[in-house]
Design a protein around this nucleic acid. Structure first.
Lengths: 331, 331
DNA sequence: CTGAAAGCGCTTACAG
DNA sequence: CTGAAAGCGCTTACAG
């Protein structure tokens, strides 16, 4: 049978209260008593039941994480950052994905109400904002990673999207490109609007007006089809800034299909720096998002909040930087 | 304040026992009483505290998952399969990685002893076998995914490694290749030995003796360096079977560096079918492991075990199949 | 069909 | 410095 605090108390000849005190290192215990109890604990291999402790204390020392998908190329890095940070603080991480519609959202909110965790990290799945806002208002601490929607009511950590867009522009301009095409992600995402705005501003600084902008959906197939279509109707450009790497890979395919050379005829720069980027042909120049650091930072923010510290009122912004590879070499 | 079962009982004018009965749909409740209670539950938005339920029932309706790393290319698929299955059964998933040495292993076993979860899914991190065996012997249900070590004492799900190796051989032989090089993973892994044995057997069936075998470590850098070195010392082969895609990508690099054409001079086939495989130059022919299905299956096995059903005594083997791309075209 | 009571394994005032 | 008792929010014999 499992050994409980009562077993330890009995074996040590003290009360459960005293055992609890040495467990939680409250100072008010006689040194020799504490030593004796500690010895018994070790000998019996006693570990407090997390469920019982949680019930008595009213918290679970567990944080939840909600993500739209686990198979996105950069999700592993975010998760690793989160798990490392959470584990180091001796918290558990409960993982959820809401990718099967209303039913899974209901299931998730149920878990929340059941108080299975103390706080929530979220890479926002679509159509969950209402739910998240409600939970947050009911007192659940929430931190957003990569706040795509720009929700100022939540603490969040994000990459420097505008600055990243600007850096992409400067990189292309330095290479002498003058007629860029921007293949954005969905414009309802704040990060997308920021990347575009940063790119535009940097181009404007060089007297270049970004005339060609087309809205994509972040997928490879869409990037390929969309740029293929533009090429077919005779549109010309000497550079493409795709708002994520997956779409950039599609762009590479479309250019190849059209017989255009990368980077000689058209330079291509992506966003994210996912693992594949090193292995495309040519390899992909891209604006790197520090996904792991974003995960770590978000987790730290949440843990601090749970420890009673106030959260920053504006988003924590982590720097991006251009990773230069073959598709858009440095001048 | 949080609404508890006592609040519901009082509002409905019944005992907590009765509320508990309708919650757990025990049949012994009067229909009209049950309806009344259910109505109050809905009106008050009552959800039982998972911690309290767990303490009273002695289980947590949560499973743990232990992985060596979250950033491996195929881990996202496994995780997605696991999470989907676990969520559908209304269980929670607690995620752990033991990648920072003894300290994190200790932390993990502590969580286990704390009874934070009822069963464990594991993609085995190195040096955790002893710990896992001990936990298993102490009664923790464990299921292994991709049992690299061949541990018959655990239920496990794995890909058809030997058959996959054989399929790789048949694919190359059908294309007329006669002098293959095998770049294995670490031979201490059971899956590696199986892939090699399957490849050897299929070659033997065609009267081909696999003379060239070299042990790698599953990384791209190693694959590149190792094959580069063999080429430099004058070794020749018309095909390479790499035991994972990452190493195969390294091989592609080494061949390119040596001025050899793929697939004309040397065909290359990998193992896994990770997302990058479609985007290498040329794209990578590879033996596909159904990672998501492996995750789903492992989760189902564990849940069945927790529900009291016996686990299969031999590994559950899921089929692999060759995904044909540019690096090793079909004849 | 229903309820009072004990129990799950802890923590935390409170009293000494 | 230490302990008896109540309480966290449930479930489950047991009795009626």
């Amino acid at each position: 049978m499992r050994v409980t605090i009562a077993d330890v108390a009995q074996a040590a000849g003290v009360s459960k209260t005293t055992v609890s005190r040495v467990l939680n290192t409250r100072g008010e215990v006689d040194a020799s008593t504490a030593a004796k109890v500690r010895h018994v604990i070790d000998r019996m291999g006693y570990v407090p039941s997390s469920g019982a402790v949680g019930l008595a204390r009213g918290n679970s020392r567990t944080v939840g994480m909600l993500v739209p998908s686990l198979t996105w190329p950069w999700m592993g890095e975010v998760l690793q950052g989160v798990v490392d940070t959470v584990e180091a603080a001796d918290f558990g991480l409960l993982l959820f994905t809401c990718n099967r519609g209303a039913e899974s959202v209901a299931r998730f909110t149920h878990q929340v109400s059941a108080r299975a965790f103390d706080g929530l990290l979220v890479v926002e799945p679509e159509n969950t904002l209402g739910m998240l806002t409600a939970l947050h208002r009911d007192g659940l601490p929430v931190v957003l990673v990569d706040d795509r929607g720009h929700h100022p009511e939540f603490p969040s950590v994000t990459a420097a999207n505008a600055e990243g867009g600007a850096a992409a522009a400067r990189h292309l301009l330095a290479d002498g490109r003058r007629r860029p095409l921007v293949l954005t992600g969905p414009l309802r995402f704040g990060c997308v609007r920021d990347r575009l705005a940063g790119f535009r501003a940097a181009c404007a600084d060089h007297g270049i007006d970004v005339g060609q902008v087309t809205e994509g959906d972040f997928t490879e197939a869409d990037g390929r089809a969309r740029v293929g279509a533009l090429l077919a109707e005779g549109r010309r450009f000497d550079a493409v800034f795709a708002h994520n790497d997956l779409a950039a890979i599609g762009v590479l395919g479309a250019l190849r299909d059209a017989g255009l050379r990368v980077p000689e005829d058209v330079a291509v720069i992506g966003f994210d720096d996912i693992p594949v980027a090193r292995h495309t042909e040519p390899s992909l120049t891209t604006v790197r998002q520090p996904m792991r650091e974003m995960g770590e930072t978000a987790a730290r923010l949440l843990l601090a909040r749970l420890a009673g510290h106030p959260s920053p009122s504006s988003p924590v912004v982590l720097p991006t930087r251009v990773t230069v590879r073959g598709s858009a070499p440095a001048r």
